Simulated assay, not measured.
Amino acid sequence: MKYTLLGSNSGRNAGDAAILSAVIDEFSRVDPDAEFFVPTTNMEFVRRSYAHLDGRVRPVNILPYTGSVRLLGPTTMAAMARSDATLICDGIIFDVRLFNPAFNFLITLVGLAPWARLVRTQLFGYCMGIGPLRTASGRRFTRWVGKYCREMLVRETDSRDLLLASGVDPSKVSVWADVAFVTRPAAPERVDRILSDLGLPLDEPLVGVNVTRYIGDWVATGGLDQAGFLEQFREVFAKLRARLAPARLVLICTQRMDLGFAQQLREAIGDAALPILINDPALEDGTGYDCHDLMGVMGRLELFIGMRLHSLILASAMKTPIVGIV
């Protein structure tokens, strides 16, 4: 079987990368000869991550010079035409900046969904997260995509409810789970090396903290801006240190774009030595790691406090106690 995997596959977000890895691992476990086409703006990430699978995972270039806008373009369409099934993975059905195809995935799926039927590739929503869907257009486009899907499997009940409220056929919708829960963590010896590189002891308790820069956009704050949030979090961080001593704290960025915000937080705290673990294996200074590395480190934590959904999912998968900040 051949599959095209539609998602945010650049490797810059540990949650997205974990979903991609888990889908490929699970399908390969059932069918060791399965082949995958992965539309991506980062060909090297896909090649490097799946080099061990002997060419069964093929990156599909969707950079603008290929004529692609996000997922919509000739390279993705050609991959779908060669596939037995096309899976919409990840949380790419939302209506934030809906009519900006350089940002929004849903607007591109509006074109790809009927194309799937035309080229006779079965279209599935696979363990998706849905939303936000705050506009009539967003709900209408979601219903349109659902019309062409054979099934739409979602990861939680809120996503199911959004699909049903958008008018998607209820017989197609079922609740499963987030596939990132079954992502493989890094080997223990690699985790030891990562902790050593970060200057963290192997024999002392550790607490991880994850923050996102999406303050006031994806994350509702009740009118609190980034500066106000930083000040509040600085105070919280000081209390955490006092209450959790002698545990060491480490900032964990599951999305590369959050690094600047994490650095601002570190500066506000006044601790230049506070380690930051970053999801981005392409960082030239060698301080970036991948989703498997982050999971391995999360498994060594006594507690994980996170804002991003998949930071909490990956920590939970490692049976680490979590506190979610919404």
Rank of each mutant, 00 (worst) to 15 (best):
A116G: 03
R117N: 13
P101Q: 12
A116R: 01
T66F: 11
G73H: 03
L112Y: 04
G67Y: 09
I92K: 00
G67I: 14
P101A: 14
R120P: 01
F103H: 04
G111K: 12
V69N: 09
L106S: 01
G91N: 12
R120M: 06
Y126H: 10
P64H: 14
L98N: 14
I130R: 05
V96A: 12
R70L: 10
T121R: 06
R117Q: 08
Q122I: 02
A79Q: 07
F94I: 00
I107K: 00
A81I: 11
L98T: 08
I130Q: 02
G67Q: 11
M128L: 10
L72A: 06
T76A: 05
L123D: 00
L72F: 14
I62V: 01
F124M: 08
I107A: 02
L87H: 03
A78V: 09
L123F: 08
M77N: 08
P64A: 12
L72V: 05
D95K: 06
T75E: 07
A81V: 08
A102H: 12
P64V: 06
L87Q: 04
M77Q: 15
I93W: 02
P101D: 13
N104K: 13
Y126I: 01
L112C: 05
T121I: 09
Y65F: 09
L118M: 13
G125C: 00
N100V: 00
R117H: 09
F103W: 10
G131V: 03
I93P: 00
V60A: 01
T108M: 06
A79P: 07
N61F: 08
I88E: 00
N104D: 07
Y65E: 04
F103M: 06
L98G: 11
R97I: 02
T108K: 03
P114T: 12
M128D: 06
L118E: 03
V119P: 07
M80C: 07
I62T: 02
S68W: 06
R97G: 02
A81T: 07
C127M: 14
A116I: 06
C127G: 12
W115V: 04
A79E: 05
S68A: 11
L109A: 04
T76I: 00
R97W: 08
G91C: 11
V69K: 11
P132N: 10
L63H: 09
S68K: 08
C127D: 10
Y65K: 14
T121Q: 05
Y126K: 05
G125N: 03
F94A: 11
G91T: 07
V110W: 12
R70H: 09
T108H: 15
A78H: 12
L63R: 14
F103Q: 05
T86M: 04
C89I: 15
P132G: 10
W115L: 08
R70I: 04
R97F: 10
V110R: 12
L87D: 03
I93K: 03
R70P: 00
I107F: 01
R82K: 15
F99D: 13
D84V: 04
S83Q: 02
L63G: 05
T66G: 09
F94S: 11
P132E: 05
V96G: 01
L63Y: 02
R117W: 10
L98A: 09
C127N: 15
F94D: 05
P64W: 10
D90Y: 09
P74K: 15
L98W: 13
L112W: 07
